[in-house]
Each structure stands twice: as C-alpha cells, then as structure tokens.
C-alpha cells in the first residue's frame, strides 16, 4: 500500500514540476510581444515603462535563467504580481480558491447523492422499464450543456419564482451553482455505478451467495455494494477535476467569486502572471485530490491495502 501511494505521490510531484516548466514557457508561446499585448489596453505606456516591466518579469533573460528565477520566487511563495492592480498573485488566488473548492465539493456531494442511488436502482432492476427510463434520463443529463442548465435554473428559480438570489456569495447563492454542476455530473455517476454493480452482481461469489438462499438485501449490502462502489471511488478524482473545470463556466453564470471567474477575466485582460498562477494552482489542487482519492481507494480495496 505504501509503495502504491509512494508511486502516486512521486507521479503527482512530477506533474507539478512539469507544470512549472510549461507555465514559464507559456508566456513565450504568445504570438507577438507579450508585454506589448498586456499593455495594449492602457494608453500612454512609455517604451521605458515597457522595458521596466520586461525586466521585472525577467523577460530580458534567457529562458533557463527565467525558469530558475521563477522557481526561486515560487519556492518562497511568491507568484509575482498581477498586471492590473499589482496585487500579489498568490493573495488574489487564495482569496477566491476556497469559494471554488466549496462549490466543487458541494457539487460532488449532490452528484454522488443523486447519481449513485439511481445507478444502484437501475442495476438492481436491470432490463426493466425502470432501468431503461433511468438510463434515458442519464444520457439526456450527460448531453445537456451545464452552462445551459445553469441559465435555465437561474431563470426559473431566481427570476420566475424568486426563491433564490441571482448572484452573490452567501450560502443561498451556493444552491444554484452547486445544483448546476452536481446534476450534470450525477448522470455520469449513475451510469458508472450501474455498470459497475451489474458487473459485480454477475460474479461467481455473488451468484453463490444468492444460491445459498441468503436474503437479497444482505447479499447486496455485504457483497455487492462495497465491491461495486470501488470503481466509483476511483472515478471521484477524475470527476473532481471535471468539477473544477466546470466551475470555471458555472462561476461565470452565477457571478460566484471563485478562481474560475478570475481566470476568465485574466485571459481577457491578458494578465499573464495571474493566468500562470491559476494554471499552477489548478494543477496542484487536481493532483492533491487525486492522491487523496488514491489513498482512500487503497484503504477500501484489500487487494491494495495488503500488498
């Protein structure tokens, strides 16, 4: 188990290291002069000021030197300053990251709460009308763009019915964005749970348990549920990454003050230090969550725990 986790942690650290390299190279991939582009919107920037920015970003050095400078600052917790406003990037991101994580976790909770029981029910009634109906709903749910679902929920619950606020950052404001993100992912969980449960139910040991005449509920609880949920747990890491990606869109619909909304603004404003910080933060969060999920998986699956 420790070996399994060690490999995963090493792989995660490697991914983050590659990200730091890509993030440094990112600014050089911009067609044209990034400093000119960044300041294109503000009039009256003198050539001297532009040179000053170029120096402060280290863009007048060679790429390897730039990378070392970037890493040196990074290890001191310094991600640079935003182009607009000159605030420390790390501070700007840390201010909003909790909002995004809160949204992603709430959405994950909703997705599992709705998706797993539906998948379980469909598997239990495999081939019946219930199963077919549930799976039609699931494929429709997967096909629905979450930005559209968000707009529809906003229209009905906030504007037509007036039950929930349109935007803001209170607890009630969390309901609609979390539902938007959660519902579209619930369908994925439902499909996965169903196929995994059906797979387990056809295993010899489950068939034997049924043949022994054990009550169905007992077999399901003791033999099917745990094994059938393992692939669902594995998928949670990937799903969380999806949620973080989906949050970028959903935050913009509901004006939820998270890193996703910040990232889109940064792209519009060509605020490269902020974009770099966002990419780095995003991959650290995704890698960290993936490792936590792997650890959970290792605890749940005796085949890995005892190896």
């Amino acid at each position: 188990m420790w070996r399994f986790l060690g490999t995963r942690i090493a792989m995660g650290a490697f991914t983050i290291w590659i990200t730091t390299i890509l993030v440094t190279l990112l600014i050089h991939a911009v067609p044209g002069d990034p400093v000119q582009i960044m300041y294109a919107q503000s009039q009256g920037t003198t050539p001297e000021q532009i040179e000053e920015v170029r120096r402060s970003l280290g863009l007048d050095r060679s790429i390897p030197v730039q990378y070392l400078m970037y890493m040196e600052r990074l290890l001191q917790g310094d991600l640079g300053a935003t182009i607009r406003g000159g605030q420390p990037v790390l501070e700007v991101i840390l201010q909003r990251l909790p909002n995004t994580l809160l949204l992603a976790c709430a959405a994950m909770f909703i997705a599992i709460l709705i998706g797993v029981p539906i998948g379980f029910l469909a598997a239990y009634r495999e081939g019946t009308l219930t199963d077919i109906a549930l799976m039609i709903i699931a494929i429709a749910g997967i096909s629905m763009p979450h930005f559209w679902l968000g707009l529809m929920l906003l229209f009905f619950f906030a504007l037509e019915l007036g039950w929930l606020p349109v935007s803001g950052n209170g607890w009630l404001n969390l309901v609609l964005p979390a539902l938007t993100l959660g519902l579209s992912n619930a369908a994925i969980f439902a499909r996965l749970t169903r196929s995994s449960m059906i797979d387990v139910m056809s295993q010899d040991y489950v068939q034997t348990a049924f043949a022994k005449g054990l009550p169905k509920a007992l077999v399901l609880r003791r033999h099917v549920l745990r094994a059938g949920l393992l692939p669902v747990v594995t998928m949670m890491g990937l799903q969380f990454a999806f949620m973080m990606g989906g949050a970028i869109v959903v935050e913009n619909i509901f004006s939820w003050n998270g890193v996703g909304r910040m990232a889109v603004e940064a792209i519009f404003q060509r605020d490269y230090p902020l974009i770099q910080g966002f990419i780095l933060t995003f991959s650290v969060v995704v890698v960290f969550v993936a490792i936590v999920i792997d650890a959970l998986y290792a605890v749940l699956d005796p085949r890995i725990r005892r190896s």
Binding site: G12, L26, V30, A241, F242, A266, I267, I275, F282, V286
Partner: peptide, 22 residues
C-alpha cells in the same frame, strides 16, 4: 500522456486560448 491527462482537458484548452487569444 499521463502527465497531460492529469492536467484535465479544461485546463489544457483554457491555457491554449490564454496563449493564442480568444
């Protein structure tokens, strides 16, 4: 491929647009 995969598609797409422009 594994490393790129763990970046997730959204982040790769967003980074590309950030570099190339909308």
């Amino acid at each position: 491929t594994d490393v790129l995969f763990s970046f997730t598609e959204t982040l790769i797409a967003l980074s590309f647009v950030a570099v190339l422009g909308p």
